Simulated scan of single mutants.
Amino acid sequence: MTTSHGGMAEQAGDSTTLEAFARVGLIAYGVIHILIGWLALQLAWGTSSSKSADPSGALRTLADQPLGRILLWLVAVGLVALALWQGSEAIWGYRNREGAKRVRMRATSWARAIIYAALGVGAASVALGSGSSSSRSQQQATSGVLAWPAGHAIVVVIGLVVVGVGVAGVVKGVRRSFSEEIDTSSMSPGVRKGVARLGQVGYIAKGVALALVGGLLGYAAMTFDQQEAPGLDGALQTILAQPFGRFLLTTVAIGFLAFGLFAMLQSRYRRM
């Protein structure tokens, strides 16, 4: 974590307790992606599943396991801790960076904090029995925004941002720039190579899926068709509908599995 520079809030951001919970959150984040990958494989090969291949489906799958509600609360606490950690990084971190790079890294931390917080709230909602499909929630949110003045332009911009996040994930995977976030000094060469490969495959596959989600969102706004903004599950079904879609979706599913394993390994090796 960043060095404390004064103030109780900043000290909380540097606390070893928060770091421990954040590492639990990385495990939870990995589990969610592994479950999304598993649900995507079921979608690709036609095996029955009543759950959508998105974070809400992953959380509901977890809820169905023995001690599922307890596990969900642990996931929620860990993800909220991750959000707090990223928030503290956004406010006080990256002091050794300058200029545009520092602004970009802080903006990335804010984005991650929002994502982790949303997933944490989602886990708590499912634990309380009130969780809903991410795709259905996105359709409702899109419908509401489209009704605003300039709502279509806003949704197009949001779609482009999501596409940008997806492309950034692909670039991060190709360049392996995620290695800057991991302490590899204690890894053997074989483990280091395996972790790098997991991160590379995972970031590329997840980036492709997010770019497709953003593209569908923008298309929905431009064509005034709210059904074209179905979220991650709908994006994966769009992949399935393409020529050789079963194999394309299997590749993406394996990527989500790889990203999940990579996130779980980060709980051990992530620099904090």
Score class of each variant (00 low, 15 high):
S186L: 12
Q242W: 11
P230D: 05
K206R: 09
D225T: 11
A229L: 10
L248I: 09
R197P: 03
D64S: 15
Q140V: 05
L249A: 14
W38N: 00
S186M: 09
K172S: 12
S267E: 06
A40G: 11
D54G: 06
R60V: 00
H33S: 06
L71Y: 07
G57A: 01
T184A: 14
A168T: 13
A28T: 04
V252Y: 14
I70H: 08
A28G: 01
A12C: 05
A117E: 03
L261V: 13
G169M: 08
M222C: 10
Y29D: 01
V162T: 09
V213C: 04
G99P: 15
L198R: 12
R97L: 10
V80N: 01
A53C: 07
A150M: 12
S88K: 07
S186C: 11
V162W: 02
G218P: 03
G93C: 10
Q139G: 12
G166I: 00
S177H: 04
Q237W: 01
D225E: 15
R270F: 02
T3G: 07
V145I: 03
R104W: 11
V163A: 09
A141L: 15
Q226P: 13
G131D: 01
V80M: 13
S177C: 05
G37D: 12
P55A: 07
A20Y: 15
A113D: 14
E89W: 14
G25Y: 05
R271Y: 04
L265E: 05
G159L: 11
L71K: 08
G190L: 10
G194N: 12
A63T: 10
R192W: 15
G202P: 05
P55D: 00
R60H: 00
G78Y: 07
A168C: 02
S52A: 14
S130E: 03
F256D: 04
R176T: 05
